[in-house]
Nucleic acid binder design. Structure first.
Lengths: 239, 239
DNA sequence: GATTACAGTGAACGACTGTACACTGAACAG
DNA sequence: CTGTTCAGTGTACAGTCGTTCACTGTAATC
C-alpha cells in the first residue's frame, strides 16, 4: 500500500525541506541552491520564497494555533529578514488565507478521489473511510490546520466553514443519485450530508490525535458509525 | 420560558459585572464595593478576585483563542497590577486549566439535567436537544471556550477531550438501559455514544455561530440527525 | 548598454510581553 | 496589643512584536 496510494495524492504540495527541520544553515538558502542551473526567472524565485513562507508557517502550526504565529518567526524560518515578508503578504492574516487555500486544495483532492461510483453501501463506506485515512495521513499538516482553525474563531474559521459547506453540498448532490435517497427532500439530503461530514471530521481529528498504530481501530469505528447511519435511511420518512 | 428555564442553570457561575464590560472605573473595584458591609474574610476576598480573573479571561476569550491571552490584560481587566496575577495562578496556562474546570462544571450540569427517564425515543431526542439548546444559550462563553479549545491543541485540548470522553462514557451507560440496546456490545455502545456526542457538539457549534433567530432551525435539524441515527438501531447487528 | 522594477537587507521606533524585586497595609493569630 | 501573613502595588529589565524607512543588487526592459 505504498506506490498506488502515494500516486493518489497529487493534490499534496511538495513541502520543500520538510521533516524535522534540520539544523539548516542560517541564511544562504537561496544563494546556495542553483544546483541544477535552470535560469529561474524572477517571478519563479518569488513564488519559491512565497512557498517557503507557507511551508514554514505550516511547520510552526503543527502544535500551536494560527493566531500565535508571528510574522518575524515565519520570515526567519524561511531564511528572510522580517520586512521581506511584506513583499509576499500584507499581514499574517493574508498568509493564513493562502494557507486555507492550499489546505482546501488538498481537501478537494480528497473529495474528488472519494467520488467513485459505488455498487454497495458497504463498498462505498469502506472506500470513503479508506480515502479519508490515506489523505489525512499523507497530509497531516493540512488537516491539522483545517480542523484546528475551523473552530478557532476569526476569519479563517469562516473561510474553512464555507469550504466545508461546499464539501457537504457536493456530497448531498452525490447522495441524491442513490436509489433509496431519490425521494428525499433536499433539506433532508443536506441534513444527511452534514451528518456524514461531521463523522468524517471526527474521524480526522481522531486520526491526528492518535499514533498510526491505532489507525485500524479508528477507521473501523468510523465505518461502523457510517453503517449505523445508513441503516436508518430505508426507514426515514422525509418531510 | 424564562423562570422555569433559568432555574435549571444552577451550574452557571454568576459572572460578576459581565455584559459589554461598562466603562468601569480603572481601579477601586474592590475598595468601593463594601455596599453590603459583610465582614468579607481575607480568603473570601482572594477567591473573589480569583473569580474576577476567570471572568475577565472568559470575556476576552469571546473572540480569540486562549493562547493569545496575556497575563497583563487579564490582570488589567480584573483591576489588578500584572504581578498580582501570580498570587492566584502561576501562569496563564494554570488559569486555562481552572477555566476548563469551570466550563466542564457547566457541561456536567447539562448532562445531569438531560438525564431524564424517557418513555419514547422522540421524547428523549427532543428533550435532549432542548437541554443542549438552553444550556448553550445560557452559558455561551463556557461552550464557546470548550468547543474552541477542544481542537486548539495543547494541554487544554487534552483536558477537554478527557472530559468529553467521560461525557460519552456516561451516555453509553445510560443508553445500555434501553431495551433495544441491551444486547449491544459495550464497544458498539461507545460507538453510538460517541456518534451522539459528536452530533451534540456540531449542534453546539452551529448555535454559537448563528444568531438566536435561527435556533429553531438548528435544533430541528439536530433532532432529525438523532432520529435518523436511532432509526438504524433496531437493524444493527452487533459484533 | 543604459534604465527601471523590485525581492531582499538592516537599523531603528514605540508598544507590549513575562518576570524579578522590594514595598505596603490590612486581616489574621498569639 | 503585638507580630506575622499575604493580597496587592510600583518600578524596572530584557525580549519580542509589527511597522517605518532608506538602502542594495540583480533580473527585466527599452
Amino acid at each position: 500500500m505504498s506506490n498506488a496510494v502515494d500516486a493518489v495524492f497529487s493534490g499534496a504540495p511538495p513541502r520543500a525541506p520538510a521533516g524535522g527541520r534540520p539544523p539548516a544553515p542560517p541564511k544562504e538558502v537561496r544563494t546556495l541552491e542553483p544546483v541544477s542551473e535552470e535560469p529561474v526567472s524572477r517571478q519563479e524565485r518569488k513564488q519559491r520564497t512565497r512557498q517557503a513562507l507557507l511551508d514554514t508557517a505550516l511547520d510552526l502550526l503543527a502544535d500551536r494555533p494560527f493566531a500565535t504565529l508571528s510574522l518575524r518567526e515565519v520570515a526567519k524560518g524561511a531564511g528572510l529578514v522580517p520586512t521581506a515578508f511584506y513583499r509576499h503578504f500584507a499581514s499574517t492574516e493574508e498568509l493564513g488565507v493562502a494557507l486555507v487555500e492550499e489546505a482546501t486544495r488538498t481537501l478537494r483532492g480528497m473529495m474528488r478521489s472519494a467520488r467513485t461510483d459505488p455498487d454497495t453501501y458497504q463498498g462505498m463506506i469502506s472506500a470513503s473511510v479508506a480515502t479519508v485515512h490515506q489523505f489525512v495521513r499523507a497530509n497531516e499538516d493540512h488537516f491539522r490546520f483545517l480542523t484546528r482553525e475551523r473552530y478557532g474563531g476569526g476569519p479563517l474559521a469562516r473561510a474553512i466553514a464555507v469550504e466545508l459547506r461546499m464539501f457537504a453540498g457536493d456530497l448531498a448532490i452525490d447522495l441524491a443519485r442513490f436509489a433509496p435517497l431519490r425521494a428525499w427532500s433536499t433539506e433532508d439530503l443536506h441534513m444527511l450530508a452534514d451528518l456524514i461530514v461531521s463523522v468524517m471530521i471526527t474521524t480526522t481529528v481522531e486520526l491526528l490525535e492518535a499514533r498510526p498504530v491505532e489507525d485500524a481501530k479508528i477507521t473501523a469505528t468510523a465505518e461502523k458509525r457510517l453503517r449505523l447511519i445508513l441503516l436508518g435511511i430505508p426507514h426515514w420518512k422525509t418531510s
